[in-house]
Amino acid sequence: MKKFKFITAVTLALTAALSLASCGGGNAPATDGADTSDTASTGAVYRTIDEIKESGEINIGVFSDKHPFGYVDENSEYQGYDVYFAKRIGEDLGVKVNFVSTEAANRIEYLKTGKVDVVLANFTVTPERAEEVDFALPYMNVSLGVVSPESKPITSLDEWNADDEMIVISGTTAETYLTQNYPDIKLQKYDTYANAKSALENGSAAAWANDNTEVIAYSLSTTGYTVGIPTLGSKDTIAPAVSKGNESVLGWLNDEIAALGSEKFFHADYEATLADTYGLDYEEELVIEGGTVAE
């Protein structure tokens, strides 16, 4: 029995010491975290435009490894088509933009939990996603495309070789489309864009399906790869997304996008960020100005 008493004493002493230690250690990293805004105070998951203005900071989820839409340059600065728009939002709201690095697979979670106010991460509008988040007016057109090696180009999915595999990134439109429409095609799923790219270049799959902008840019910049299928599935749009039910930020974004149309903001954005990658030939096809999709 004496042994147990000793253990109890040790236990109590350690618990006391540790509760202090863990407080000190645990709090330290929180102070330099990017997203420590408190959402709990209002009860709602999301913040309204007024709350964002009051805090002086807006948290915008962007890709940090998806050139030329959202990436980080060699000076640690976020750049790209989505980022150019995000910076303008910050300017017009008069707040500092806090960029949060998101992955394709966790964009919805960030909004559902209010960890970001807006997602501008090349987010394609789909009915499934619209059930979980609210999309503002679109600012870009997109459809799917398939890139494959020039030596073995894939021009149609109908004569798919059963042994071949297709690369997709988890959580993207391409994954959903292929699963629904081509259930027989074996998919190789990757969590990050960089890993998918490496996999194609290492020859571990026959082709890579992704947004057509991505595959066009990829084939123009990488020798030996061609876009055998430039458009696949329905034409979609890319739009900013906010937490479900956040009418305040949604309304503000819609007004902003409509107003920016008069100064051809997204054309300027395209020329500043995308022209280097896609050339000017694709400008009218890709850009949506003022939130209205041309027929």
Binding site: A30, A34, D35, S37, T39, V45, T113, G114, K115
Partner: peptide, 14 residues
């Protein structure tokens, strides 16, 4: 965040 309404940073969660 979704269950408790507490917003913690990625570093703290890690």
């Amino acid at each position: 965040t979704s269950a408790l309404g507490v917003n913690i940073s990625g570093e703290l969660a890690s």
